[in-house]
Amino acid sequence: MNDNQARMSAYWKKNLKTLVLLLLVWFLVSFGCGILFVDFLNNFKVGGYPLGFWFAQQGSIYAFILLIFIYVIRMNNLDREFGVNED
C-alpha cells in the first residue's frame, strides 16, 4: 500500500467513526427516547409536555437538524486535514 492509499484509508476510517457516533445519537433520540423509553420518560415534564411525547413530536426533529450540522462541520474539518477538500 503506498502513502496516498494509507492516508485515504485513514480518512475513511475517521469518516466511519463519525458516522457511527452520529447515527448512535440519531437512534437514541428517535427510536430510543421517542418509542422504546417513551413511557418511562413521560413521567417527567418539560413545560406542559410529557418528556417522552416531546421527544417523539418535537425533540427528535431538533436533534436531527443538529446532527446534520455537526456532521457538516466535522467533515469539512476532516476534508481539510487530509487535503481532500474541493477548494
Partner: peptide, 19 residues
Amino acid sequence: YDGSVYLMGWTGGYVLLAL
C-alpha cells in the same frame, strides 16, 4: 402520540440522506 411515526419518519430520513 401514534402520529409521531410520521413526524420522526419523514424527518429522520434526512439524517440518513445527509450522512
